[in-house]
């Protein structure tokens, strides 16, 4: 559970994204694309789920990428090489079904780009024609461009402010691609509004769409039901039934609301933390 590498990918006011490599031989030996871990920074910390971005079974390490949002990710960001996590468990959730689908599109938004990376690598290896669309608010917060370029046959980049790539949203490019050619699968990870929009567009074109949901969790093993979501009218637990679901039938409004249930408490604890610093 010791951190052996740390890279700050983005360090701008209000947006800090960090990549760490952690020693976890048992998890590295089993990890597959799409799976996640649950970790605790300190003994008094929350349990938080994070996607496994890369795993190296020879080296016995896993890599995770996180954006500092609440206190837990801030504390995680303060750990340095040589520090150890308090707890780390995994791999959790179902892995992505990797096979040769034919032509696939991967859409990553914000820190969700980190989550599509292992899937892109695996799909490419399985013989798929991989088209990747990355979206970021602005140029300086775009992550893993180089890595995804080498994992994709085609790469498109969009920024909200036009500072890099195409000005606009990932869904603009997605719509153009889908109207020109046939694709077997769209795989999208990013902020809820993005995944929701992607799913709406692909539904028009009737293309199978998988999304990886970022519901709040506690144990991550099906014990608590904190991460329950409605998919196709049925209650599912993101941790053990997901985290990937059919984007066309997810109840996005419900997920959006459930993810905000501790906003007040999060603000309070972050203010306290600032005051202590």
């Amino acid at each position: 559970m010791k951190i052996v590498e740390k890279k700050i990918l983005v360090d701008l006011p209000g947006t800090k994204v960090t990549q760490i490599k952690v020693i976890a031989p048992h998890i590295a030996a089993k990890a597959l694309p799409g799976e996640f871990i649950v970790l605790m920074v300190h003994a008094k910390s929350e349990r938080i789920p994070l996607t496994i971005v890369e795993s190296d079974s020879k080296e016995g390490t896993i890599t995770i990428i996180f954006q500092e949002a609440g206190l837990s990710t801030k504390l995680l960001g303060r750990l340095n090489v040589g520090d150890s996590l308090f707890a780390l468990v995994g791999p959790l959730g179902h892995h992505t079904e990797i096979k040769n689908y034919g032509k696939v599109i991967l859409v990553g938004g914000g820190v969700g780009i980190a989550e599509i990376y292992p899937v892109a690598v695996a799909l490419k290896k399985a013989g798929n024609h991989v088209t990747t669309i990355l979206g970021a608010r602005t140029k300086d917060i775009l992550i893993l461009e180089k890595e995804l370029k080498s994992a994709s046959d085609e790469l498109y980049i969009t920024t909200d402010d036009g500072s890099y790539g195409i000005k606009g949203f990932t869904t603009d490019v997605l719509r153009q691609l889908l109207s020109k050619d046939k694709y077997a699968l769209v795989y999208a990870v990013g902020p809820i509004p993005m995944m929701k929009k992607v799913s709406a567009v692909t539904l028009e074109f009737k293309v199978k769409t998988l999304v990886s949901l970022n519901a709040l969790m506690v144990d991550g093993t099906g014990m608590c039901g904190c991460c329950r979501v409605t998919v196709g009218g049925e209650v599912k637990f993101t941790c053990v039934d997901g985290p990937e679901f059919d984007g066309h039938i997810c109840d996005w409004a419900e997920l959006e609301k459930r993810n905000k249930v501790y906003t007040c408490k999060e603000k309070h604890i972050c203010t306290l933390d600032e005051a202590l610093k």
């Binding site: 008094k44 506690v218 501790y262 408490k265 604890i269």
Partner: peptide, 25 residues
């Protein structure tokens, strides 16, 4: 669920929030 409510409070010590970081409403 009772499991979630009690896990937050008992295992994660949410009754000592914010000293412990797991919240419960």
């Amino acid at each position: 669920s009772a499991n979630e409510f009690l896990t937050r409070v008992n295992l994660m010590s949410a009754f000592k929030f914010p000293e412990y970081h797991t919240p419960v409403n």
